[in-house]
């Protein structure tokens, strides 16, 4: 792991203090005992099609918005979407900047620009969004993650970029 010049905010500790102050029991964060899988990157970045998955509660106008009670559904966003049709809804982060410029949590214009400049080969046709404030890690691991894996594999993505908030 790389050292950071400033001490990063420890959100596990911040959450513990907040819950403690409210009289709630501590939240049990996932601590992975097993090391992660590690798939080899076999092509240069400039030859790779990238799939985007973002958790910031992004939806496209016309789609059903997310609710805030462990919503494990997801939305399919066409990566040719006009940026002004994108919205953000979430209970756990300050939405003002995301609603002013969705690229702060869903870097769609950024990735299209990186494609145009040749840094990446392109985007998959579909991107995926969900509302990541899901307290049930089981629901994520058993329902949402397998569904998104199937989608990303079907898109024949070379790489997958994930953006939490």
């Amino acid at each position: 792991m790389t050292e950071h010049e400033r001490t990063p905010v420890d959100y596990i500790e911040v959450t513990r203090r907040t819950y403690d102050g409210l009289g709630y029991p501590p939240y049990h964060w996932v601590r992975s005992e097993e090391p992660p899988a590690f798939a080899p990157v076999t092509k240069p970045l400039s030859a790779c099609r990238v799939a985007l998955i973002a958790s910031g509660g992004v939806y496209r106008q016309g789609q059903i918005a997310f609710h805030f009670r462990d919503d494990a559904s997801y939305r399919v966003i066409d990566t040719s979407v006009p940026t002004d049709e994108l919205r953000a809804t979430h209970f756990a982060y300050d939405l003002r900047d995301a609603r002013a410029d969705i690229n702060v949590v869903f870097p769609i214009d950024t990735l299209r620009a990186l494609r145009d400049e040749g840094t990446i080969a392109g985007l998959t046709d579909e991107a995926y969004t969900f509302m990541g404030g899901i307290y049930s890690a089981r629901k994520v691991a058993e329902e949402l993650a397998p569904a998104l894996v199937d989608r990303v594999v079907a898109q024949e993505a070379d790489l997958c970029l994930l953006v939490p908030v």
């Binding site: 996932v30 899988a37 998955i53 890690a137 894996v149 990303v152 594999v153 790489l159 939490p164």
Partner: peptide, 18 residues
């Protein structure tokens, strides 16, 4: 959000996609 994304990243990687 960061926990959910981490779990999904591990699952996607396990399917062979970096």
């Amino acid at each position: 959000c960061h926990q959910s994304v981490g779990l999904i990243a591990r699952a996607v990687e396990a399917a062979g996609i970096p």
